[in-house]
């Protein structure tokens, strides 16, 4: 069970390390790291890049016919790892303020992570090979009703998850552009 969920353990350990760095900064500055500070910016940018990687690399690998580096299961583990750590860093980037577009983006981030957990659950209901392809041998052993139900749920999940993800990234890009515009360009 642990071997099959090692991405969750790695994600948990990574979050612990990030929390330690957060506490360290808090200890020395005696204040919650602001989103606009160096630390806040760093965790925000890295978190966003991890989220971007979450959404793109796994999907690209899944659809790529040329670049077939690594097994699909490894990419899925990476997808889950970055899908947890990235949003967690973005959460710390908020400095616990959730107003305006930034708050909406954070909310969408939380929703997409939650959705991801559900998707993983549904995804694992359908037997697959290590490359993520449906294992026809094992599928054959499933009851037809259960398999159809799982496929239907997965399709439904995609239908919900993808728009949420798109909405999240549109909001995130708007937030980033707003920050660049108002803070960096000082307009």
């Amino acid at each position: 069970m642990l071997r099959r969920s090692k991405e969750l353990i790695y994600a948990f350990l990574a979050c612990i390390l990030i929390i330690l760095s957060y506490v360290l900064v808090f200890h020395y500055t005696n204040q919650i790291p602001a989103a606009s500070d160096l630390y806040g910016h760093v965790i925000g940018i890295i978190g966003f890049l991890l989220m971007l990687a979450t959404e793109t690399l796994y999907s690209l690998r899944k659809r790529s016919r040329l670049a077939r580096w690594g097994s699909m299961s490894s990419w899925l583990q990476f997808h889950i790892f970055t899908g947890i750590v990235g949003p967690f860093m973005v959460l710390l980037h908020t400095s616990w303020k959730f107003n305006g577009l930034a708050g909406v983006t954070t909310l969408l981030t939380g929703v997409i992570v939650f959705s991801g957990f559900i998707g993983r659950y549904i995804y694992t209901r359908i037997p697959r090979t290590t490359d993520g392809i449906e294992d026809t041998g094992l599928i054959g052993q499933m009851q037809a009703g259960a398999l159809a139900n799982a496929r239907r749920l997965l399709s439904l999940w995609h239908t919900i998850h993808i728009p949420i993800g798109v909405a999240l990234f549109v909001a995130a890009f708007a937030h980033i552009l707003g920050a660049l515009y108002y803070a960096t360009l000082l307009k």
Binding site: E55, S59, L60, I162, G165, V166, A167
Partner: peptide
């Protein structure tokens, strides 16, 4: 890619 699907584009 899912983000390029009609649903995603409409959502965006």
């Amino acid at each position: 890619l899912g983000c390029l699907s009609p649903l995603a584009l409409i959502t965006a």
